[in-house]
Amino acid sequence: MKCFWALVGRNCKVFFKDKGVFLPSLISPLILLFLFIAFLGNVYRDSIRSVVAGFEISEGLVESIASGWLVSSLISVCAVTIAFTAGTVMVQDRVTGARDDFLVSPVSSGTLSLSYFVSTYIVTATMCFFALGAGFIYMVAVGWHLSFAEFVLTVADTLLLVLFGTALSSLVCGFLKSQGAVTAVEATVSAAYGFLCGAYMPLSQLTEWLKNILMFFPGTYGTGLMHLHLMGGAIDAMAEEGIPPAMIAGMKEGFDCTLQFFSSEVPVWTCYAVLAGAGAIVLGLCIVFNLKRKRKE
């Protein structure tokens, strides 16, 4: 156990001490948040106002809903993209030969792989909570509508999404053998994941067939949970300003707080089950491929 935690500590240290990797990972969520606010903030504010057209709604509430959307989108994307960046430690060790150094000691390859998984999880969670903290500061500044339960659920959603991101990154990085390959994968994931999981664009605005395809992607359910817990309170608060319940339900559906799978509403517990189940399956695949690789050697 001592040896396992020594490896976990070393992997985290290597990530945090590599300024070329750590600083961009730290700054990019803040840049993304700024870009969201600067370029997409008005789009979402207008979209919210258009949904409740004909009703009066306070600007504070509009800001609050928009900020909830932006922060939930940010965390949903970061949980996966940062996990891929953190996964570079494992690939880098393969490139530099550090992995061979560990394997000539009495450490088993299983312990080594698990240490990479746990350290990637710790690093990603740390960076995501940093981004979530920045997001909360923004939300408090524009109007806070989160209950304590929603706050706790947001933290839980983040941890679960990070687990899913870590499993996905461990599976993919397990096949990578060069720094160039990692960079290419990171670039692809950063560019595509936000669209694939419904973070950049609400699924409700997509064509039916595309929406249905994206609903087969487990990350979508994680983003849905984040949207629900970071925006739900603010959307529900519209009732106090005289917005009819049907319009509130429409707003929740329009902003992916409630997801539709082939026109049927997906219960919250199903979202958790899909995300946790997908994480477990990906993790299982990691173990299978690790064993296969070991046998091949």
Partner: peptide, 13 residues
């Protein structure tokens, strides 16, 4: 105890 052809220690540590 093994000394590899190229140094395999962590350069940032």
């Amino acid at each position: 105890g093994v000394v590899f052809q190229d140094s395999v220690l962590d350069k940032s540590l």
